[in-house]
Structures are given as C-alpha cells and as structure tokens.
Design a binder for these strands. Sequence first.
DNA 1: AAATCTCCCTAGCAAGTGCTTGGTAGGGTA
DNA 2: TACCCTACCAAGCACTTGCTAGGGAGATTT
Lengths: 205, 205
Amino acid sequence: MNTKGRGSSRRAELLSLAAKLFAERGYVSTTVRDIADAAGILSGSLYHHFDSKESMADELLTGFLDELFGSYQEIMAAGLGPRKTLEAVVTASFEAIDRRPAEVAIYQTEAKHLMQLPRFAYLTERNAEFRGLWNAILTDGVAEGAFRADLDVELTYRFIRDTVWVAVRWYNPDGALSADAVAEQYLGILLEGIAAKRKRVRKDP
Amino acid sequence: MNTKGRGSSRRAELLSLAAKLFAERGYVSTTVRDIADAAGILSGSLYHHFDSKESMADELLTGFLDELFGSYQEIMAAGLGPRKTLEAVVTASFEAIDRRPAEVAIYQTEAKHLMQLPRFAYLTERNAEFRGLWNAILTDGVAEGAFRADLDVELTYRFIRDTVWVAVRWYNPDGALSADAVAEQYLGILLEGIAAKRKRVRKDP
DNA sequence: AAATCTCCCTAGCAAGTGCTTGGTAGGGTA
DNA sequence: TACCCTACCAAGCACTTGCTAGGGAGATTT
C-alpha cells in the first residue's frame, strides 16, 4: 500500500502541475497522462501519490476555498463599515486571483459541473456562504445610506461576483498591473461609475 | 452519398439539441451519443446530417456571431453619441443572451479552447473586432467628456465585456426579469456606480 | 544486515470516444 | 417501372480514457 500522505514535496509539485493543466485545458480535457507527461513520469505512477484524478481537483479546490473564506472571515470580523468592507472583500478576491490563478480558474470554470457530484457538495455550500456574505454587505450598505437605495441587491451581487472572478481569464500575475491596482480601478467603476461627474456639493455642509 | 444540406428542419432540430447539451455539459463532455440519445436516434445517424461534432459547434458559433455582429454594426452605423452607443451595444448583448442563451454559453466557455484549432480562427478575429469596437466607444466617450477622463480604457473594456457575457450563467429567458431590464440595471451601475450620490449641481448653469 | 519506505516502471484492462461502413424503409419523381 | 432521396439502424473500428496489479531500485530506519 502506498501512502498518499500529504507531506511530500514531490506530491505538492505534482498537484501544482495538475492545477496548471486543469486551468489551461480544462478538467475533463486534461488527462492523467498529460499530468504525468508534464512531470516526466508515467500515468500509473501518479496513483502512488493520489487516489484519483477527482481527488486532485478536490484537494485543489478545498485548499483554495479554505484560504479564501479565511480571509473573508477576517474582513467581516473587523467590522469596517459597508463601503470599506466591500472594498476589502473585492481587494482580497483580486489578491486570491493573484496568488492562486490556477485554482481560481478551475473554480470558475469547473465548479458548475463538479458541483453535481456528491463529493463536491461543499461547493454548493460555499456558494451559499458567498451569497450570504455579499447580501449582508449590500443590504447593510443600502440601509446605512452608503449605497444607492434603488439597488437590486441580488442583481448587484451577481454583477460583482462575476466581474471579480472572471478577471482570472486575463489577469497576469507577472504583468505590469498588480492585483491591488486592478482592484482599485474596478472599485472606482463599481462605486462611482464610468460616466463623467458633474460638479458636486456635500449634502450636509 | 448523403447531402448534409442545411435546409432540413430535422437538421435544425438536431443542431438546437446539440447547442443545449453543449451549453449544459460543455463541449468535450457532451458525446455524440448524448446528442443522438436526446434526439431518439443512434449516434451514427447523426453523421447523415453533420460531418463531425466539431462542425456542429462551428455552425452554431458562426451563426450566432454573424447575427451578433450584424446588430453591432447597425448600432455603430447609427452614429448615436458614445453614451447612447454604449447603452445600445450593452442592451443588444443582453438581448443576444436572451435569444440565444445556449450559443452564448458555448461561446463564453468553449471559445478559448476552440480558438486553438485552425478551423475556429475566426473566433480570434471576432475577438479583435469586438475589442476594436469597445475601444472606439470608450475612447470617443472620454474624448467627448461623456466618460471619466481617468478611465483605463483597456481595463474598462475587459470589465464590460466580461460582466455582460458572464450573465449568461444566471440569466433565465423565461424568468421574471427581461433582458432589457437587466441591461438597464447593469448600465445604471456601470455608468453611475453603486455608491449613494451626494447632492448635485450642474457644471454649466 | 535486515526491513521498510519512497517513487517510479511495465503492462494492461474495461469502458468509452468520434466516426465509418453497408444496408434499409418509405416516399417522391420521371 | 426505374430511379433517387431522406432519414435512419446495426455493427464495429481505431483509439483514448481513468485506473490497477505487481515489481524493482535506491534511500532510510531499525
């Protein structure tokens, strides 16, 4: 019996390779032979380290989501107001894209299909958690007057969620634009819009 | 020799079925047997109507893109200003999602992989066309003072493109929210932002 | 020195993949 | 009557898929 323990560095190396290929070619299009080839071994040898192809995806997604929601919880616990919380959550999301682009890409493109498998039921739970988080931020913000009163909260949630995560398709961690810079630009559009402003005066002088 | 002509209504029926399955399960995960099963025939019988699985996807994407860019060209030819043009293009895109959700979903999720095949080189061309169109709208808008001067045009283009098309993942043509209503909500956020407004005065009184 | 562990190979299986072949039933047309 | 067309079936081919069984060389532990 082989170990399939999680301590090996070779194992981590293989998992990272798998993540890259899953992200590039898609989960179903990536064969275990592809992964083995990239590592310079034969496909059967992969099964010394992992139970199955599915378990590789599982491990990648679990690790990523645990880290992501950890950072979300820290932000929510800090109790900044709605606007600052929104900024922090969006920024943390872009930083996740920066740190783990492959995992985000896998989550973004494969979750829908993987969710149907019992093994990946936690993806559905995470989705609900995510929705709850954004609903709270937006509802609070509207109540406190930080966000527009006529916002369709559900629709706004979807727009924010989608636009943030879909950025993984073009964002380049090695590029000139940092994740924080992208987050800042995005928040500028999201909060203030792209239309040119007319002159402003404060409501309460 | 069979015809594979494009006039048959049965053919159109099969193509529509394939579109639905490609959109739901993904192109690679959908087998020709799946499509045949859905139509109540055997997999081999599909090849009386189509040359290959690939040609089904080709036909679906070509038809969709021709229609889409046709509507874009009409809008551009109308010569509305930047802001109205932006609104019209975004609205036309949401209407495309409404009319051809399966095709949009295929384009959205499979184009990246299909583009690598010589047969689908036109996808790359269409992408460039799309980018040019948005660059023109945004650059014009900034020049004319309709949009904020500090906009990163390239980044803004990506945000708009992604957020519009990714809506196909949750938009339901049979739902309560019409495509035009979604477009209006989205344009509200995009143009004016979600932050609550302070009192305004006109720049030129 | 013996035993164990790590990491990989050789070899292959069962299930499924897109696609091809030869054929047929029913209908229209000359 | 003779011919052709549409739309399908039955059978199967060449190949790919995830995964398994068993073994072996080298390092580490006992």
